[in-house]
């Protein structure tokens, strides 16, 4: 995934407006891009081409449904590991091989690997975390959310 800022001229005003609009969500209708296209003064085809390009240049990482594991009877859990530096890349491979690992970040701390497990059944969290402990021989600290203070944070493109 791209970590460097795009050159400022990589996105025009319509691209920026599109990113901001699409963060709010697409309507669930037969022609979901029609309203956005009208608002931007573009055709639906032009909007679709722009979304494809935004994905290709890395301005967006994903376009699709965002799922909440808890709402379908499952769970998310933030996990952390203290991975010895020489083993780091090998442990990344072992951890990321699990489809339940939704994202994973290296962080500057003694606990240097932080990942989120997403399972459609609550018991899945413990099972996957235990399996990762067995595969790596390292403890997996578990930080399930007790409460979420939800806010409509948006990146202004």
């Amino acid at each position: 995934m791209r970590r460097e800022p795009l050159p400022h001229d990589a996105l025009d005003t319509a691209d920026r407006t599109l990113i901001n609009m699409l963060q709010d969500g697409l309507p669930i209708t037969s022609r979901p891009f029609a309203g956005i296209a009208a608002e931007l003064g573009l055709t639906e085809a032009a909007v679709l081409l722009r979304i494809a390009r935004l994905r290709d240049i890395g301005a967006i990482t994903r376009f699709g449904p965002f799922l909440d594991a808890a709402a379908m009877g499952g769970a998310f859990c933030l996990c952390a590991m203290d991975v010895p530096e020489p083993r780091f890349d090998a442990v990344v491979t072992l951890v990321n091989a699990h489809p339940e690992v939704a994202h994973n970040y290296q962080r500057i701390h003694r606990l240097n690997m932080w990942f989120v497990l997403a399972c459609d059944r609550p018991e899945g969290i413990g099972q996957v975390a235990d399996r990762i402990e067995a595969e790596t021989g390292l403890p997996v600290l578990r930080f399930p959310k007790l409460k979420e203070f939800f806010i409509g944070f948006k990146v202004t493109a």
Binding site: M1, R2, R3, E4, P5, L6, I19, L22, Q23, D24, G25, L26, I28, P32, I51, L54, I57, G58, A59, I60, T61, R62, F63, G64, P65, F66, L67, D68, A71, M72, V155, A157
Partner: peptide, 16 residues
């Protein structure tokens, strides 16, 4: 709430 929304995940880094 199973689907929170259908939308984009902006790449914070790419957007500065």
């Amino acid at each position: 709430g199973v689907v929170r929304r259908i939308g984009v995940a902006p790449n914070h880094y790419a957007l500065g």
